[in-house]
Amino acid sequence: MYKIAFNKKIGIDFYIMRIEGNFEGSPGQFYMLRSEDSFMTLSRPISIYDIGDNYIEFMYKTVGKGTQYFSKMQRGDSITLYGPYGNGFPVDEYIDKKVALVGGGMGIAPLMYLAKKLNNPDIYLGMRKEAMSPEQMREIGESYSRYGATYFNIGNDMTEKIDLSKYDAVMTCGPEILMKKVKNLNKNTYVSLEKHMGCAVGACLSCTCDVNGKRVRVCKEGPVFRGSEVDFKDED
């Protein structure tokens, strides 16, 4: 078990939790988090927001009882982590190339660590107007801008404002309708899928999706896939 260093509210229902310890992981991978003192039977999958010397950070949104419980945890509380799991973004392949990162809503979370590992990407973040105050958005934008030019889009379809065709690759996470639009604007797109997960090791089959005409497990074969391989037919 590890100790929480801080658990900061950064929006109406967004939080960043820092946990003390030595951790590893690649951008796009995730950990399973659980508090032994809670009602939770299953751990909750949360993508890596940042890793530094003696800490790991997770950005999460309160969407159910598990994350609601996390939001009430405080400095010094104990928490259990398992991971990292899954396959991340191909950072080494694009370290010196022109890359755009596109995140919508909670999908902005894995892009922080990804931006940190890439060489000066362009970062596009989309958020609902009511999700954060202007001051909170400015603070988050400043955090990302340490690693690349950062653009915040509030409330509108940001894919209509970005020329994604000029990039060698685009890496995206967010609502599936956003990722579908992004992959149609650049053939070399990588998407990070968000699915409900029970075990994180591919045993429970609760997180399957259609990739290249086959049902695959997001926790094992993903969560990052080539956008051209993912069937987003249910999103119009």
Results as ranks from 00 to 15, higher is better:
F58L: 08
Y94I: 03
L114Y: 08
D236P: 01
L33A: 08
S165F: 02
V182K: 03
D157S: 00
L81R: 14
V211K: 04
D37M: 00
A131G: 03
K98H: 13
M158V: 12
T189C: 02
K233G: 14
S192C: 01
D234G: 08
A203W: 03
M32G: 12
M112H: 13
G83S: 09
I95H: 11
I10P: 02
E160T: 12
F6A: 05
K116R: 14
E20D: 14
N119T: 15
E135Q: 13
N153P: 00
V191Q: 02
Y55K: 02
S192D: 00
G174K: 05
P134S: 09
V191F: 02
T189V: 01
G227D: 06
M32S: 14
D122F: 06
A131Y: 10
I79N: 04
Y82L: 12
E235R: 01
I79T: 09
L164M: 15
L33G: 07
M32P: 06
I123R: 04
V102G: 06
K181N: 07
M106P: 00
T172Y: 04
F58P: 09
E160S: 12
G52E: 13
T41Q: 12
D231I: 10
F14P: 00
M32Q: 12
I19P: 04
S38Q: 09
I177T: 13
N188S: 00
A100K: 08
L101Y: 08
D236S: 06
L114D: 10
K214W: 04
D96H: 15
S228N: 04
P45Q: 05
E20A: 14
F152R: 06
G227I: 02
K195A: 11
D236R: 04
G104I: 10
Y2Q: 10
Y144M: 01
K72H: 10
A115F: 10
G28D: 14
S47W: 01
C219R: 11
I79E: 07
E160Q: 13
G83L: 04
N184H: 10
K116P: 07
G198C: 01
N54F: 08
G66I: 15
T41C: 01
F89V: 05
E24G: 07
K9E: 12
I4V: 15
V182Y: 05
M197H: 03
A203M: 13
T189G: 01
A169M: 00
G64T: 03
S143C: 01
L178C: 02
G88L: 08
Q136A: 12
I48R: 13
